[in-house]
Design a protein around this nucleic acid. Structure first.
Lengths: 339, 339
DNA sequence: GTTGGCACTCGAAGTCCGTGAGTGCCAAGT
DNA sequence: ACTTGGCACTCACGGACTTCGAGTGCCAAC
């Protein structure tokens, strides 16, 4: 009973603080929520909550503000995931259905997510590591430059440019191409390294160097996890917090410019269904101590593909944002599946 | 004599304001620059300059600040383009020489430019309109989905996905592919539309729909100026102006999220050699009234390819920034040329 | 055309309250 | 054993007031 009300108080504090962005006091709390007790009682609960580390006062004689720990408890036990409204769902549909290719899906998704959540959005390209090779093509750009194209079953195209020391004849090229196709076409990426070991030995001695170079480039394209590309959008939302809040945007913008950082933010998402929330200091990235990251995985068919999510201030609308991230991940999965 | 000193005063004001970001007064001016006259004289000149609209006072009894017009005069007549230091040149070299493909060149360039100028950097992909088709490839992704790849002579790969109503046989596909190659391989983009008119009539009636769909996709890829892609970087620099300056970053970030806007910023650059500077309100984009844009064209071989540049507050170091933009454009031209 | 002098302006920064939201604690009430 | 009203206390915030000084325009003298 007692414990229960305390949690209700915490929930109310989080909700009020998120909507007003101002420290919330006992009196205001009683007025805005029908808690059925007096401010004095609330004060006792607040003192307890503060003791336990869930809330804090910016200074004596100010209202309370949730701590990271408070948000954590709120997310874990006090809030659900708010489903989207039908109009929102419809908007997602319309927006994503018009996408023409994979790049377009990614760009549209990031825009959509930024718009829905009014936060900075991140979308990772589907992982290559579970893709397979649909087709390989080798084309000359000039006499000593080749471009190798690897088309995956997901419609993604990886390219690598190879410089060769000596001009390549059409015959040589044809030879390499056909052997390459035989070796790796329709094989999963994971088996390509095996398939290409000793790729060069079958060639005439003069062509072995060429074969080696091509094989190396293919290998690089397949293993180098260049799939780890992240699209970013909605950074303007960062500027919305009119300096009044403890969110210095410079370090955040800086962090977001690093692909590596973006990958780390998205990378550690857990299970497929759930939405992952990382709050404030829980976040492994320097410069983002005052932000929370909400991510979800999306899938292609039955296998997880990659993650998407948002970055925003810790005092955000968790239920709503989690709902949006979840919904978008689902829809992206569906879109990819259709293709 | 008189006229000359007035210009010297304007130059001094711009230089001081750019370095201190504070309105500059007559006394400070005399102290920091050896103008050889007294503050009172400077005041007279300042009054004249203000009369003519080159400088303004934020409020009575404050120093002067250059107006957009003042910066314009400064750029046109008072400042040169500051060449880079040898170490800087070396850094550019090293940084760009490691690029492995076109995407990489673009990404590295934008980083480099942002770092050198400490401003937001923009780099446009080389124009496709002057490219020619190196090779075309058609590959099936599933029975009813094809992917068309167009490899340009600059090593860029354009892709389009085509949905076809009926499954396509290997024979049909081979037919389409070979005819497509005959029709457009090694032709400049500009002549592709002509080359593809009536592409379908040579096919068997049953295959004409397929041919039409493929031709349409190729045409779209070639004409849709999808070359108009801009890479953006260094947005964190926007946050450097600690709120103290009349640069609200939100509208700027918003503007920079629109590809269309970026293209407009880069699009109207003038001649190949010169660096274009657009100051404050001269800028055609809403939200960027308080920023200046400095752009330069880069080339591939002898033909202009596209533009790159930076966006920053009007009170920036014009000579240095112009130097950096110019130098980077040159180096990018060189790199592209080598490839 | 230049200069020193001088009165004037006015934003920035500091100081000094008054106000009020908010707190913690306590004793009384249920 | 909680809850509650009462009460003294704290302290950030905002307004009013003042001081300070950089900077100005103007003018008479050089």
């Amino acid at each position: 009973m007692l414990e229960e009300r305390r949690l209700a108080v915490l929930r109310a504090i989080v909700e009020d603080y998120v909507s007003t962005h101002e420290p919330v006091g006992s009196k205001a709390l009683v007025e805005r929520h029908s808690l059925g007790v007096s401010p004095a009682t609330i004060r006792n609960d607040m003192a307890a909550l503060e003791e336990e580390g869930y809330i804090a006062q910016p200074h004596t004689s100010a209202g309370r503000v949730p701590t990271d720990l408070g948000y954590r408890l709120f997310v874990d036990r006090l809030s659900g995931v708010k489903p989207l409204t039908p109009p929102e769902r419809r908007a997602i549909h319309q927006f994503l259905d018009d996408a023409v290719d994979l790049d377009d899906v990614m760009v549209r998704t990031v825009r959509l997510l930024a718009q829905l959540t009014r936060q900075v959005a991140l979308v990772q390209y589907p992982s290559l590591s579970r893709s397979s090779v649909r087709h390989v093509e080798v084309v000359t750009l000039s006499t000593t430059r080749l471009i190798i194209l690897i088309i995956t079953d997901s419609g993604r195209v990886e390219q690598r440019i190879v410089e060769v020391p000596r001009p390549v004849s059409d015959v040589q090229l044809g030879d390499v191409r056909s052997r390459l196709v035989v070796a790796i076409a329709n094989k999963p990426f994971s088996s390509v390294p095996d398939a290409l070991t000793d790729f060069d030995v079958a060639f005439a001695p003069d062509d072995q160097l060429l074969a080696r170079l091509v094989a190396a480039a293919v290998l690089e394209a397949v293993t180098e996890r260049s799939d780890e590309r992240v699209v970013l959008g909605g950074t303007a939302h960062l500027a919305r917090y009119g300096e009044s809040f403890p969110l210095a945007i410079q370090p955040v913008l800086e962090a977001l410019e690093e692909q590596v950082v973006l990958l780390r933010l998205l990378g550690e998402a857990s299970s497929l269904q759930a939405v992952t929330v990382r709050i404030g200091h829980e976040n492994p990235v320097e410069g983002l101590e005052a932000t929370s990251v909400i991510t979800a995985r999306y899938a292609r068919g039955d296998r997880p593909a990659a993650s998407l999510g948002i970055v925003g201030p810790t005092h955000m609308d968790y239920p709503g944002t989690m709902g949006a991230v979840h919904a978008v991940a689902q829809y992206v999965s569906r879109i990819l599946d259709e293709q």
